[in-house]
Simulated scan of single mutants.
Amino acid sequence: MKRVVLLAIICLGVLFSCTDRDDEVNLVNIRVQNSTELFFSEVRIVENDTVYENIEAGEFSEYMEFERAYAFTAISILTDSTSLNYVPVEMLTDTLPIGFYTYEISLDEENQLDLTFKIDN
């Protein structure tokens, strides 16, 4: 009987000690996904003058927090061999709600930057 009670206490302790990453979110969290074959030494979010560094081809950056962010924004990228820029066709003025998001960066057929906005779970 003691083992059952002890096991129940341990299970309840583990259950209540686990937190989800969404539990303590107070700001917009954005990461960058490099969906190219290039190494990004620097990805600058122009609007907020924020820099993500050293993103390998096919990899993600860490999340960064923003007080205010948009689904589409101007981006400047430095690679080993060149500098690339992305300016959205239309600027959305609606700010993102608190949560987790990804800017997926890829290249189109003409080697121009393409930005895909994703909502993370």
Rank of each mutant, 00 (worst) to 15 (best):
F117W: 06
E47F: 11
N48D: 08
F117P: 02
I55P: 08
A74K: 11
E59Y: 15
D49N: 14
L92T: 09
V51L: 14
S106Q: 01
D94Y: 08
I55D: 09
I10R: 01
L38G: 01
F16E: 02
D120P: 05
V89T: 13
G58T: 04
T36W: 10
A71M: 06
R68Q: 15
V5P: 06
T93L: 13
E67N: 10
M1Q: 11
E53Y: 10
P88H: 04
D80S: 12
Y103Q: 06
E110P: 00
D114G: 05
L96P: 01
N48I: 06
E62I: 14
V87P: 02
L107F: 09
Y52D: 04
L27K: 12
C11P: 00
V87C: 02
E62F: 15
T73E: 09
Y101D: 03
R31C: 05
V5W: 10
A69V: 01
Y70C: 05
R44K: 14
V46G: 02
S81Q: 13
I45A: 03
E110A: 05
A71H: 08
E90L: 07
M91K: 07
F72K: 06
L113F: 09
Q33V: 13
Q33D: 05
V43L: 07
F40G: 04
L38N: 07
N121R: 09
L113Q: 03
Y63S: 09
N54E: 15
V46I: 13
I77K: 09
L15E: 02
E62Y: 14
E67W: 06
I45W: 02
N121K: 12
R21A: 07
P97D: 03
L15I: 06
S17F: 13
D20A: 06
M91F: 11
V4T: 14
F100E: 02
V89Y: 10
T82S: 15
E110H: 04
S41P: 01
M91D: 03
A8H: 08
S76F: 12
E62W: 10
N54S: 15
T82N: 12
T93R: 10
I77S: 08
L84A: 03
T95Q: 13
I105M: 03
V32C: 02
E53R: 15
T95M: 10
F39C: 04
T93G: 09
D49R: 13
